[in-house]
Design a protein around this nucleic acid. Sequence first.
DNA 1: CGATTGATTGAATCGTTTCAAGTACCGTGG
DNA 2: CCACGGTACTTGAAACGATTCAATCAATCG
Lengths: 216, 216
Amino acid sequence: MVDALGTSIALHRLPEVLTAEPARLRALAHLLRFRREQDIYVQEERTDTWYRVVSGSACKYLMSTDGRRQLVDIYLPGDLFGFTARLHHRFAVQAVTDGTLIACYPRHRVEALAEEDAETALEIRIQIVEALERLQEQLLVTTTMTAQEKVREFLFYFHRRLSVATGHGLALPISRYDIADMLGISAETVCRAFRDLQERGVISLQGPRSIRINRM
Amino acid sequence: MVDALGTSIALHRLPEVLTAEPARLRALAHLLRFRREQDIYVQEERTDTWYRVVSGSACKYLMSTDGRRQLVDIYLPGDLFGFTARLHHRFAVQAVTDGTLIACYPRHRVEALAEEDAETALEIRIQIVEALERLQEQLLVTTTMTAQEKVREFLFYFHRRLSVATGHGLALPISRYDIADMLGISAETVCRAFRDLQERGVISLQGPRSIRINRM
DNA sequence: CGATTGATTGAATCGTTTCAAGTACCGTGG
DNA sequence: CCACGGTACTTGAAACGATTCAATCAATCG
């Protein structure tokens, strides 16, 4: 049922994501590193661990019977994931970027901590609400926009969240196929949208993965 | 900015939805009744109240500049809503059914209660996670299915949640337009899907709002 | 009773998918 | 070093599905 898990690792200096969280929550974490497309958890796996992206990126997805893959969320550094009201996961999560670093928290210990520590409880509630709001935005995007608008919106969102300021440049950590699965359109349509956005001067491409955002 | 709120009411017998919630949470509630399409809260309103559907139904939606309306969730009896990580609401919520009964909770008092009462904190967390999971399902539906499958899925979902057993019958509390806005398709397409599903024997219609589900 | 709203159907149009083909890039082994 | 094979990306053309626009029907309300 379960893939081999990522490699357990220890760090000398704590990444910013972890120093920002409540100390008592941080104490519960252990770190794992994942390769590209390696599963962090899979469908039907028991929901006994929560996770947080420390570096890299991951995506929540569902594999349909006909082999199509639908992404329902992308997790970037700081995002907490893995909570559910069920006993078993309905979706799977896998690393998008190679070398993605994940903090793992035993669910029952986090929940016990949340019962007595209001700061942790609030942190969890905020993270869940933020996942909810990301999903609402994605729903809006995927149901109301044309393909070209979807891609444009996706790029701006990514740029906003990853703007660790390499000028206006953006190094996409994600393939055309991932973007397609995220937006619910075909990879070919994503390509055409990239081309059209460039022709309209909205973005500039220096190679397929290196993008410059010119204007809103 | 804010519509006239619903009518404040008092009840002799508590509805089941309210007797099921933690007593200390229930003590914070006051009840309001809303007419069809009346706003419970609107975009940009301050997020200082949480709500729960006691009876009837409500929908969360966003009005786009071109006048189109996109629903992102439907709330049925028992559902808690109104929480967000923001200061102001990004979406609005309005009653779908005429006479919808809503319990209102002052946000700061609920959050204070959650800090000291683990049962309430858990109830809130579960409700938020369930909203998240509804949204994930809706995202799957709206991005991967054909119009006919979307409508079929919507009807089955509604039937599941509202099966207070009138045989296999289902009295839709929602118009073709609402369904269209929920699924991100046009109302005409919803109509055609109803017709096709009936022709294929999946459902039977006794009038536009009265539906019988025949098989999965 | 006409007026309004919701539901329904048909026909032309438009956007996206699908299928097919071709290109650019990168690491590996001869 | 270059040829090879694989993967990601790109483009074109036909087919398909949903939208849009227009018209009609049914039910409800003042």
